[in-house]
Amino acid sequence: MKIGPDTVAVVTGASAGVGRAIAQEFARRGASVALLAREPQRLEQARAEMLRLGARQAIAIACDVAHEDQVEAAADRAERELGPIDVWINNAMVTIVAPVKQIEPEEFRRVTEVSYHGTVWGSLAALKRMRPRNRGSIVQVGSALAYRSIPLQAPYCGAKHAVRGFTESLRTELIYENSAIHLGMVELPAVNTPQFEWCRTRMSGHPKPLGTIYQPEVPARAVLQTVETGRRETYVAFSSAMAIWGDKLAPGLMDHYLAHKAYDGQQMDEPLAADRKDNLFDPVPGDFSAHGRFDAEASPHSTSQRMNLHLPWLLPCAAGLLALTLVAAGTAAGVRRR
């Protein structure tokens, strides 16, 4: 599917972070964009930005994707004001950074309702409109954590695993129906977004991304490439592919590595502000956009992602080979110690 002025796209979680960056990419192509998120003022700022960037039309729809009736109403409005929906991007998410023993049941439930059920409701709303036309593209913004869970984010990791399971099941049903609707998933690495300013946490240090950090434009471009090429799944950056293939080949080794690295790796030395607010149940107001505070550390490009566009087999093969080499080296070291 070629994205251009005739394209109508819906993006959830579009007021900041990766969702805002995805909407910007559609706007630069001249598409019409419906922006869904919870915070009305920031949504309106995003809408004005899309028009400045070249969007044919842009509308802001205040919507909590955890509620299927709100998602359905948003889809109705998008089609009424912009026209038939061609692309639906499920990106909205929330998380909490804390050990499982410190997470309350309502917090587990909320992360699941937004990060998993929100994707389900968005997919169903899109399919309701795309099926009669037998065309369109739905893309789930996933994560390497959909394959390889890490400590301190059990609800979010569980939700992303569920999104992958739901997507694979739905894809088989679309194939059975001989549907021409594209269903893709994009697995993200660590990204420099404002979520680290507002995610709920019970740790002492300020949250930060784990691993190599990329600017949100990197996954945003991958989402557009996935739509335009009809890709089934895209691993964004080599770090995502390494995490995924490392888990496939040596899950036990990954367990121990992350147990020792991911606690401190998700925290800065900077303590939390006493008046810090989080967005788990209510949006945090403020003039946030696509980028977070980690611009100095974040890469604006991914060489492996550019190669992956033209040689889609190369990134997973290279990551798998490297992971296998590391497993072999670890096994050999263990044998020598014995």
Rank of each mutant, 00 (worst) to 15 (best):
L224T: 00
G205V: 07
I175R: 14
T212C: 08
C199H: 03
G211L: 07
A180T: 11
V191Y: 04
A220S: 04
E177P: 09
H161F: 15
S239C: 09
L224R: 02
V186A: 03
E187H: 15
P209G: 00
S169V: 10
T172P: 05
R202C: 11
L174A: 05
K160T: 04
H182E: 12
E168C: 06
A243C: 08
E177F: 09
S240M: 13
E177M: 12
A180D: 14
P207Q: 07
L170P: 00
A243K: 03
W245K: 13
E233H: 12
L253E: 15
I175L: 15
A237V: 06
A180H: 15
A190C: 03
E217C: 09
E217N: 12
T234Y: 06
G158I: 06
W198D: 12
T193V: 06
A180N: 15
A162T: 00
R202E: 11
F196H: 08
Q195S: 13
P209Q: 07
V227G: 09
Y176Q: 14
E233R: 15
V227W: 06
R231Y: 07
W245V: 02
V191N: 03
G165W: 04
A243M: 14
V223P: 00
V223Q: 00
E228I: 04
P251W: 09
V163G: 09
A222F: 00
Q215F: 01
L224K: 00
M203Q: 14
P194C: 05
G184E: 01
Q195N: 12
L188Q: 04
S169C: 11
I175Y: 13
P207Y: 00
D247S: 11
P251N: 13
L170E: 03
L188I: 01
L183D: 05
V218A: 00
K248W: 15
N192Q: 02
P219R: 03
C157D: 12
C199I: 11
S239R: 07
R231V: 06
T172I: 13
K160Q: 09
A222C: 11
R200W: 09
F166T: 01
G205N: 04
M185P: 02
A220K: 05
